[in-house]
Amino acid sequence: MSNPTTGPHTTGPHTAGRRLIDLLPHIVLIVGVLIFAFPIYVTLIGSTWDAATIGRGNLPMIPGGEALNNYGHAWSESHTERAMYTPVRIMMMNSVIMALSIAVGKIAISILSAYAVAFFRFPLRMVFFWMIFITLMLPVEVRIIPTYKVVADLGMIDTYAGLSIPLIASATATLLFRQFFLTIPDELVEAAKIDGAGPVRFFFDILLPLSKTNIAALFVILFIYGWNQYLWPLLVTNSADMETIVIGITKMIGTGEAANDWNLIMATTVLAMLPPVAVVIFMQRWFIKGLVDSEK
């Protein structure tokens, strides 16, 4: 916002009109935020009341007193009088392990393959590049049956490896890194060669530090991608011990046989939002750092 004492908007004949134009974007933004935030607010409030209050259908808009009880229950108990659940602490761990493996694995593999494609001349280089590129056109769902078959035959059902490895290959991230690597001037690579850095040293001493902000951005995107996986975990996990939190929430809702424990569902949902939010907040510091000492 412009400074009210020196800004050009406060003087001149159009002051009132100008004000409105200044305010309009804010109004739009505020309305937008309210629309987006309202369901989350309802979830937060819901997680602080007891099941009966929510079940009656008129949820108050102010917090109730059951928060500790609900969150404690959702976190560690495996059943209520109505149904059996996997405790959030187990599902949370499963989800974190899966999302981290996917994010870290995707970044590691794609940065290495981009390094190969961008910096080395080897036979069939462009063939490999186009093969990577073409896999972009095949979403996970298309190859899910054969993938399932492979994972099952390898005995990876109900394992973390089975949950994450099939999702790790990533053409998108490879392309992103390749594009970034192509912007690195040839002279920088040559200067490193003359300084005596071999391919491995160049990668770790120069390329990796320069890719920091790209890695941070991709990590956020990929962590959330992994966290939100639904179809694949549903297929490869059978035991309750391997359930991810996204699967857990959907299983808690509506088998139809009993009323839903809405208070626990909402507490679980709120807990499920925390790790992605934490990742965004933590990584944001890296973005800003990268932006502030903008390096070339």
Binding site: E187, L188, E190, A191, A192, I194, K212
Partner: peptide, 13 residues
């Protein structure tokens, strides 16, 4: 040998 380039080619980080 050591080389000096036109665009400096310093390691930015």
């Amino acid at each position: 040998i050591a080389m000096v380039f036109q665009n400096y080619a310093l390691y930015p980080h």
